[in-house]
Design a protein around this nucleic acid. Structure first.
Length: 424
RNA sequence: GUGGGUGUAGCUCAGCUCGGUUAGAGCGCCAGGUUGUGGCCCUGGAGGUCGUGGGUUCAAGUCCCAUCACUCACCCCA
């Protein structure tokens, strides 16, 4: 075996691809109901776009991007997430001139140079939605409700919704300062990583896994106690609306999202059946992002879910329906050397396909027994047997593979039966 | 980037601790048992540079080193 799929990538083989298709189609159906329309953006963008939107100090930018220079000397990066490209397209095409708010969805592969593990690949797929043009807290709730509907529609019943507010740039700045002061006072008892964090990204101090750090930071100031009045008001309304829709959530003061562009609402959906990477998806509000990327100040809110993780969690919870039911027609030929008979088989095959019926035949010159075995394996509903013992003119032998019985019918009757039972 | 576990047939794995004749099983695949008919059963067949490269040894799937990949976890995230 010479070539292998590159590290952190994988093939989706038949049998698994169908599961993905199921998840994708549910997502798209729900987008349609909610009024989101699709946008497709390039898989690579200028590197600077991602650096600008996500933030220089984020891990994604510092060590996880696939960056390269093309033959024209352009600095490019494979997209590590979907929002930046959507925002770029929003600005570039003046979408703010369309009827507001603008509701978009996207689906596609993302790339991060990470060490692979359960629920984490270097190429992974995200589906996401974005709403531009309104600060209404009801929109934050719509995005959350959408996510919940989506997960419930797939059959999940035990996901937990974590939510927090990270404030606007102003109240966050005040808060971060207080947090730094708090951390500096006990820097000696924090782990090495946290010492770094207190300088670079104090918000991250909150979700360190070290027990010692957790203990030290237990009484750290909470951002929700330091929100400015408008952020406080926004968060209260979001929670009120969630309550009104009877959406159960847990306000997690430690919840911090990894990308700098989030403001105010941040949320994640967790699954307990997954491993360490237990987030099926998440999102939040990003009121400064469009402006940061060079557009007119436009509020936005969105979320993204990871397809691999969803499929993995669904497998663990046995949410996919079992094997597909028997369907379609296999045309078996008794005497493979009988050219007129094979001709008849091909004509029938193409006639039935023309009627939109799943239909196939043997091309390996195999014995009737082998053809029957094949038809069984491939779960065909009916087998039409041409030739065979004492064939009579103008009739077809039709075998029902589920019931195991076989009848010989006039050709026209046989076709009528097949069309009725296998047609759409 | 750091640490643990694992790489033997298409798939799931045994064999490795205690090196020693032609490397095994189940499933799958192909064929036969049934002078043309699937599922169950029986028989036979095909299929392996034992991840790769070095080393130790008379002898390496088995011991040692390196490397690559998979896997789980950390960091971080979907």
């Amino acid at each position: 075996m010479k070539y292998k799929a590159p590290r952190g990538t994988r093939d989706l083989l038949p049998g698994e691809a169908e599961k993905w298709h199921f998840v994708e189609s549910r997502f798209k159906e729900l987008c349609n109901i909610y009024g989101f329309t699709e946008i497709r953006t390039p898989i690579f963008e200028e590197t600077a776009l991602f650096v600008r939107s996500m933030g220089e100090e984020t891990d994604v930018v510092k060590k996880e991007m696939y960056i390269f220079k093309d033959q024209g000397g352009r600095e490019l990066a494979l997209r590590p997430e979907g929002t930046a490209g959507v925002v770029r397209a929003f600005i570039e095409h003046g979408i703010h001139n369309e009827a507001q708010p603008v509701k978009l969805f996207y689906y596609g592969p993302m790339f991060r140079y990470d060490r692979p593990q359960a629920g984490r690949q270097r190429q992974f797929y995200q589906m996401g939605i974005e709403i531009f043009g309104t600060k209404d807290p009801a929109v934050d709730v719509e995005v959350i409700k959408f996510s919940q509907d989506f997960f419930q529609g797939l059959g999940f019943s035990n996901l937990s919704l974590q939510i927090n507010s990270t404030g606007c740039s102003e109240c966050r700045e005040d808060y971060l300062e207080q947090l730094s002061v708090f951390a500096d006072a006990r820097v000696s008892s924090l782990c090495g990583d946290c010492k770094e964090r207190s300088r670079l990204n104090p918000l991250r101090l909150l979700d360190c896994k070290e027990i010692g750090c957790r203990e030290e930071m237990k009484d750290a100031p909470r951002i929700t106690d330091h929100l400015c009045s408008s952020c406080r008001d926004h968060f209260d309304k979001v929670l009120f609306l969630l309550d009104s829709l009877e959406i159960i959530y847990n306000v997690d003061h430690q919840l911090v999202r990894g990308l700098d562009y989030y403001t105010n609402t941040a949320f994640e959906f967790h699954s307990s059946t997954l491993g360490a990477q237990n987030s099926l998806g998440g999102g939040g509000r990003y009121d400064n992002l469009v402006e940061v990327c060079g557009g007119a100040s436009t509020p936005g809110v969105g979320m993204a879910v990871g397809v691999e993780r969803i499929v993995m969690a669904m497998e663990k919870e046995a949410l996919f329906s079992e094997e597909m039911p028997a369907a379609g027609i296999f045309i078996a030929v008794g005497e493979q050397n009988d050219l007129p008979l094979r001709r008849e088989a091909l004509l029938l095959l193409n006639y039935l396909r023309g009627k939109g019926i799943v239909c196939d035949t043997d091309y390996l010159g195999r014995s009737l027994k082998a053809q029957m075995k094949f038809a069984n394996r491939k779960r065909f509903r009916y087998v039409v047997i041409l030739g065979g013992e004492d064939p009579s003119e103008g009739t077809l032998k039709v075998r029902d593979m589920l019931k195991g019985d076989q009848t010989e019918l006039l050709r026209s009757e046989a076709i009528e039966l097949l069309l009725k039972n296998c047609g759409k």
